[in-house]
Amino acid sequence: MAIPVCRALVPDSHPTCFSNLSNGTSFPKKRSLLFCTSSSQLYPVRSEVCFCVGTHLIPHPNKVERGGEDALFVSSYNGGIIAVADGVSGWAEENVDPSVFPRELMANASSLVQDEEVNYDPQILIKKAHAATSSIGSATVIVAMLERNGILKIANVGDCGLKVIREGRILFSTSPQEHYFDCPYQLSSEMVGQTYLDAMVSRMELMEGDTIVMGSDGLFDNVFDQEIVSTLKTHGDDVAEAAKALADLARNHSLDSTFDSPYSLEARSKGFEVPFWKKLLGMKLTGGKLDDVTVIVGQVVSSSNINVLDEITGI
């Protein structure tokens, strides 16, 4: 079977992760989780840190019944691990459910976080999770791992993204990988897809108070950087509400045909435009991109005197 032409999003079923599996629950969903361990004596000079995380998922309006095609998982291992996978909707034309591959990919990743061979390396986690995935399909993916000393390791294949915000400004952003407009790199069940070797790998040191925003392209195609920063400022330390607000903003922009979104700006830069007669009337290509939206907001906090809070084990 040939790999279908690009696009889409997806969920998991591991007991320690969050997902948008269609299991009779309502959508959208939001969750928050504090990933912390009490401070040890390993780093006597610098306080250990961990993630406090909020998540929110809104499926595409036409995919609500099955929970959409985005998946994510969140683990409290070490300083915290977060990941998002975005299934490719083109598989539906081959009578393949596009949500199954990313769900299994995320479930496998979640179950492998403590694997010795992974050794807290997001690129190797992607490798092993991909190798263990037997479903037909493909997905973009991003994984971020925070060590308790503040080192953040990131590996991404495709256009799921992550931004680091410090003191009200974007300090770091991952770059999307794509073959051409709207066709990102992707892990696949087919030999022609990308592998963990194609992952873009990043590493940086975070500080207490830093905030990360991770999401599928349903977020970043519809929300500008300055909107992300202002939304985080509005909601302060409430990561769950911040994730919900960003997801709601992305959905609202995606439904607005007059909004000059990041997606429409990129489309015009790639040569896409409205029909000639509309151009004569002064019209241009605008609007958001209707898609599944997955948002994870993580705040870096000190783990001193905080116990592990892992009461959320699923939907």
Rank of each mutant, 00 (worst) to 15 (best):
R46S: 12
Y196R: 01
S173W: 06
E48V: 02
S264V: 08
H60W: 05
A107W: 03
N20S: 14
I306H: 12
N156P: 03
P28I: 09
T174V: 07
G215T: 01
G161I: 00
A242T: 06
A85M: 06
S134E: 11
C160V: 14
C160L: 10
L255I: 00
D115W: 07
I58V: 12
F259M: 05
D159Q: 12
M191E: 15
V113G: 07
S302A: 12
L162W: 01
E227H: 10
S230I: 09
S32F: 12
I212N: 02
K289G: 07
N149D: 15
I151W: 03
V143Q: 06
S135C: 11
S39M: 13
L42Q: 12
A109V: 01
Y263F: 15
S76G: 15
D248Y: 14
K29I: 14
A2G: 02
A245S: 15
G150V: 00
G168V: 11
R66W: 13
V164C: 12
P44Q: 09
S261P: 03
Q177C: 06
S75N: 12
F101N: 00
L125P: 09
V49Y: 02
F101Y: 11
N95W: 03
Y196H: 15
K278T: 05
L171Y: 10
N307Q: 14
L285G: 00
S254H: 03
A71N: 10
S264P: 02
S76D: 15
N156L: 03
P11V: 02
C160S: 15
F259N: 04
T174C: 04
P275E: 13
P15D: 00
F220M: 03
K233P: 01
V157W: 09
T258D: 09
S202T: 11
N62P: 04
S216M: 03
K30A: 10
Y196T: 07
I136P: 05
P262H: 07
G67T: 01
L265G: 00
V293Q: 05
N156I: 00
S110N: 06
R31W: 15
S26H: 07
T174L: 10
V300M: 04
L125G: 10
C160W: 08
A109C: 09
L246P: 08
E311M: 14
D256M: 03
R7D: 15
L232T: 08
P102K: 07
R203A: 09
M207Y: 13
S188P: 05
F18G: 06
A2C: 05
E147C: 12
G90V: 04
S175M: 09
K163Y: 02
G90W: 12
I58E: 14
D159R: 13
R169A: 14
F35D: 13
M145E: 10
L232P: 00
Y185M: 01
E147F: 12
G218N: 00
N20V: 00
Y120Q: 13
T286G: 11
G68L: 02
S254R: 06
S75H: 05
L232A: 06
F51R: 03
P102Y: 03
A71E: 04
Q186W: 02
Q186N: 01
N20F: 04
V45F: 14
I165R: 00
M191Y: 13
T174W: 09
G80R: 02
L112A: 13
Y185E: 05
G24Y: 10
G80T: 03
G209S: 11
V192C: 11
R66I: 15
G298E: 10
D97G: 01
F101H: 02
G288F: 08
I296S: 08
A139L: 06
P275L: 02
E65A: 14
F272T: 00
A250R: 02
M145P: 07
